[in-house]
Simulated scan of single mutants.
Amino acid sequence: MNDEELLRYSRQIMLPQVDVAGQEKLQASRVLIIGLGGLGSPVAMYLAAAGVGQLVLVDHDKVDLSNLQRQILHSQQDIGHHKITSAADRLTKLNPHLQITALDHKLSDKELREITQNVDVVVDATDNFETRFAINRVCVETATPLVSGSAIRMEGQVSVFLNRPGTPCYRCLYREEGELDGSCSENGVLAPVVGIIGSIQATEVLKILLNIGSTLDGKLLLLDALHMEWRTLALKQDDECPVCGTRSTERRAH
C-alpha cells in the first residue's frame, strides 16, 4: 500500500484483527454482489469503502423514482439509467482504487457458475426466491461462501452459508417460499431497515475475507425493527435438502 492508502484505511488498520496484513488481504479479494437495490446499496458502499479490491456487480434493472427512498447508491439524475451505471459511478467516486466488473443483464446458470468460481464471497441482495435458489445452488456446487439477506416491511434477516461439508445451505432454511417472500413494491419497507440488514451483510463479508470472529454460519439473525428486537435461530443441515442434503448427494452419485 502507498501512503495515501495507508491513510485512507488507517482507522481500520488500527484494529488488531485487521492490521496491514488484513487490509492487504481485503485489497486482494473479489466479491460478487447480485442486486443493487436496498440491500446491495449499503453492501457495495461499505465493501468499497473498506478497501475490498474487486467487486463484481450484477443487476439488470433501471433506476425508478420509487427506488430512491431506500436505494442509496442511486440519485435523482439516475432515473431511467441502468443501476449498474449509477452504482459503478458512485463507488468509484467513493474509492478510486476499486476495480469494478459491471454486468447489466440477468446471468445464465453458466455465467453465474463461472463468476462464482472466481470470487471469494457471493452476496445475495436479491428480492425473489427463484434467484436466491439459483445463487444458492451454484454456491453449494462451487463451495463458495454465501451471505444472504432480505428485508420487507419492518422486518429483516441475515445468514451466512459457508457451504462446507456438514453445514446448511439456503435451501435447508427454505424449501419453497419463505416468510419474508414478496417484494417491497407489494408489501412496502421502512427505508433504514434495508440499510441495517445490508450493513450486517457487509460486516459478515469482511469477517469471512479476514477470517476473523464468528460469522452467522449456521445461524439466522432476525430483526423486528418495529420493536427493535433481535432473535438468533440455529440452523442445521437438512438430510432431505434437494441441494446439499446427504440423501440428495447420494441420489446424484447414483
Rank of each mutant, 00 (worst) to 15 (best):
D217M: 03
A225V: 04
D224C: 03
S214P: 03
G213A: 10
G198R: 02
E229A: 09
M228D: 05
G213V: 07
Q237R: 10
N211W: 06
G195R: 12
L226E: 11
L190G: 01
D239Y: 01
D224K: 01
L235R: 01
D238Y: 03
L235T: 04
T203Y: 11
L222Q: 07
D239F: 02
L222H: 07
K207I: 06
S199N: 14
L206N: 13
L220G: 01
L235C: 04
I196H: 11
V193C: 13
L209P: 11
E240W: 04
L190V: 12
V205M: 13
D224R: 02
G218E: 09
I208S: 09
D217C: 11
V189S: 08
L223H: 04
A202C: 12
K219T: 00
S183F: 03
A191H: 05
S183I: 04
Q237E: 14
Q237G: 03
H227M: 04
V189L: 15
L233P: 01
I208E: 12
Q237F: 01
V193G: 10
A225C: 08
D224S: 05
E229W: 02
L221M: 13
L216T: 05
L206P: 14
C184M: 06
E240D: 15
A234F: 00
I196F: 13
L220V: 00
A202K: 08
L206T: 13
M228F: 12
A191E: 03
V189G: 10
V205Q: 11
A225R: 00
E204V: 10
V194H: 11
H227Q: 09
P192E: 05
L210T: 08
P192H: 04
P192A: 02
N187P: 05
I212T: 15
N211E: 15
N211K: 15
Q201G: 05
A191C: 06
T232R: 05
R231V: 01
N211A: 15
S199M: 08
E240R: 12
A202Y: 11
R231L: 04
L221I: 04
D224G: 02
D217W: 03
L190Q: 01
A191T: 07
L222Y: 13
L210M: 08
E186P: 00
S185H: 04
L235G: 05
Q201F: 09
G188Y: 07
I208W: 14
L190E: 00
Q237N: 02
K236H: 14
E240G: 00
A191V: 01
L233T: 02
T203S: 15
A202P: 14
M228W: 10
D238T: 07
G218R: 09
S199Q: 08
L210D: 08
L190F: 15
M228P: 00
V205K: 13
D224W: 01
G218N: 09
T203M: 13
C184Q: 07
V205S: 13
K236E: 13
T203D: 13
Q237H: 00
C241A: 07
D238H: 09
T215R: 02
A234N: 02
L210S: 09
L221W: 11
I197V: 15
L190K: 02
S183W: 03
L206K: 12
E204R: 12
I197D: 15
S185L: 07
D238R: 13
C241Q: 09
A234D: 07
A234M: 00
S199E: 09
K207A: 05
E186Y: 01
L210W: 08
I208D: 11
T232H: 00
